[in-house]
């Protein structure tokens, strides 16, 4: 059986909220190392890869590998019943029809129990190659969100160019052009505000802003976001979670002229 207890329901609520507009039905693959999810959006442009490591739960028990096929809209309805600070426990049998969710509020001695019906989801798993990215940029997640939202007002695409001097987001639209350049910046007192750039070669790629704005729904999960780019490969947008867990988004670049 599976039994996984999260100190705060907040984490799962935010993860599901961040991905539910991108993917609808997906398997939560549970094994002894944790709970993983990999799913493409309907148009096969973006890929979500989530890993909640066993260490992020306390306790965590998973006797047999189990795939929990979940409709995220339905899961959202159930998670709405959990307060952010509630202790959340996920439970499932070895061949489950339902996922049992328990929310506990120790202050008010309230215990809520929900059973979510599971579905059989035949999901293709993609092999994500280990990539040595040419550019890795770490920046505040709210800054990245602001840039994407601002540029989307002008255009549907953004060009991202990185050099050792900085990272430049630029777009061209019907009403005009826009560009935001961030230079490397270290703030000892506020390390969350740092912009760090590691570069082995310059990169220039174009991406759909609609997807990037969608990824930015995860900004509440982490104060910083990491962008990993190499020419002619998908962009990796990573939100690191506590206990080496993560929420990653991959986005295929726009190609051709």
């Amino acid at each position: 059986m599976l039994e996984a207890r999260l100190e705060q329901a907040d984490l799962l609520k935010k993860v599901v909220d961040a991905i539910k507009d991108l993917v609808q039905d997906c398997n939560f693959d549970c094994n002894d190392s944790g709970v993983a999810l990999q799913a493409m959006d309907n148009s096969h442009v973006a890929l979500v890869s989530m890993m909640l490591k066993a260490e992020s739960f306390s306790p965590y028990r998973c006797d047999r590998n189990v795939a929990l096929g979940v409709n995220l809209t339905s899961l959202t309805k159930v998670l709405r019943a959990a307060q952010n600070e509630d202790i959340l426990t996920l439970k499932a049998e070895d061949a489950p029809d339902v996922l049992n969710l328990v929310f506990e509020n120790t202050d008010s001695d309230r215990l809520s129990e929900y059973d979510l019906k599971l579905m059989d989801i035949d999901q293709e798993h993609l092999g994500i190659p280990d990539t040595e990215y040419a550019a890795t940029i770490s920046l505040p997640s709210v800054e990245f969100r602001r840039i994407c939202v601002d540029l989307m007002a002008l255009s549907e695409s953004v060009s991202i160019e990185t050099s050792k001097d900085g990272i430049k987001f630029s777009c061209a639209g019907d009403i005009g052009n826009g560009a935001v350049t961030l230079r490397p910046n270290t703030n000892v007192e506020k390390p969350d505000q740092n912009v760090e750039i590691e570069l082995t070669e310059p990169v220039a790629l174009t991406f759909s802003l609609k997807y990037l704005v969608n990824f930015c729904k995860a900004a509440g999960l982490s104060k910083t976001v990491k962008l990993c780019l190499s020419n002619e490969v998908p962009l990796l947008v990573e939100y690191a979670l506590a206990g080496s867990s993560y929420l990653r988004f991959y986005l295929a670049p726009k190609i051709g002229d």
């Binding site: 493409m40 148009s43 096969h44 442009v45 973006a46 890929l47 293709e124 798993h125 993609l126 092999g127 994500i128 190659p129 695409s157 174009t206 759909s208 490969v233 998908p234 991959y250 986005l251 295929a252 670049p253 726009k254 190609i255 051709g256 002229d257």
Partner: peptide, 14 residues
Amino acid sequence: KKGQGSIMSFFGKK
């Protein structure tokens, strides 16, 4: 004009 690539053309099926 650039066209949108598919994630499947970069990451093969397992």
